[in-house]
């Protein structure tokens, strides 16, 4: 039972929490606001918070200067493609580890996680050369493969923790009812694990969307996703703040909205189910 708290105390807590929340959010808010300013207004030494001439001009300019939709599409393909491919490989693996655990299951999970600990930079050169020699450099296919492998341990681990919560008796019941292994996974396990699979999907789309090491090092013009699109704005100085803001807003908006709508699944996914 939650206890009654005095209104005064609640007001103070509310004020502090909102203050800190807005402070943390401020860089993003400021970027969004700046994206609607003129370039002159953007570098005004006495910046105005809300009372400036709102304009959409920056968004037009950014779209003219660079192919936002093209990069956006690359991001979607890479993030979704690598996540779906990862799920396809990880669901059977997680089924095995959750429902037919052996003595080495724990070790296997730890080993998978440890591949995630290997610094990407340690294998940058070989991957770069392999991609170059197989013609996968600067291709969406290449990035989908690399990001699938990069995030596979996390996908397996997350699914494993979700599957662990499904009582094994239900799968045994399916087996008694005459379901083959495929039917058991397709008709019983997967539908029951939909919330878990959804939050795994979500977290990995976000991770893949924001992944910046491989996407920056393995792409050039053709398959560059939004991470690379935004990096191309890193050189211009002062006069381009408003355009930079518009580009940034467009790069982060899709994932920000997706993340906000699915907060609950996100939190659950983030902890690998280790914290409830």
């Amino acid at each position: 039972m939650a206890r009654e708290v005095s209104t005064g105390r609640k007001a103070v807590v509310t004020a502090i929490a909102w203050g800190i929340g807005l402070l943390i959010f401020f860089p993003i808010l400021w970027t969004v606001l700046t994206s609607f300013k003129t370039e002159g207004e953007a570098i005004n030494p006495h910046p105005s918070f809300l009372f400036f001439d709102w304009t959409l001009e920056n968004y037009h300019t950014v779209n003219e200067r660079s192919d936002y939709l093209g990069h956006f599409w690359n991001s979607v393909v890479i993030a979704l493609g690598s996540t779906l491919l990862g799920l396809l490989i990880a669901i059977p693996a997680a089924w095995s580890m959750a429902f037919v655990p052996g003595k080495r299951t724990k070790d296997l999970l730890m080993w998978m996680l440890s591949t995630k600990m290997m610094p990407a930079v340690g294998v940058l050169v070989p991957i770069y050369l392999l991609a170059r020699d197989t013609g996968l450099l600067d291709s969406k296919t290449g990035l989908v493969i690399v990001l699938t492998l990069v995030n596979l341990p996390i996908i397996v681990w997350m699914l494993y923790t979700y599957f662990k919560e499904i009582p094994g008796e239900i799968l045994e019941a399916a087996r008694m009812d005459g379901a083959s292994l495929g039917a058991e996974i397709l008709y019983v396990l997967t539908p029951m694990a939909v919330p878990g699979i959804a939050s795994t999907l979500l977290l990995n789309v976000i991770l893949a969307w924001n992944e910046s090491f491989w996407t920056l090092n393995l792409t050039a013009a053709n398959s560059a996703p939004l991470t690379a699109f935004i990096a191309s704005y890193s050189s211009p100085e002062g006069l381009f703040y408003a355009k930079l803001s518009a580009a940034s807003t467009m790069a982060i908006a899709p994932i920000l909205i997706l993340g906000w709508f699915s907060q609950k699944q996100l939190v659950r996914g983030l902890t690998f189910g280790a914290v409830k």
Partner: peptide, 29 residues
């Protein structure tokens, strides 16, 4: 394998399929 023994089992936790209706549960086998 269990499916080919011609036996049916009722589990302690009932082990019903939570995502299926009662009718679908009974029809599953």
């Amino acid at each position: 394998p269990p499916a080919r023994r011609g036996l049916a089992m009722v589990f302690q936790s009932y082990a019903l399929y939570p995502h299926m209706t009662v009718g679908k549960n009974i029809a599953f086998p």
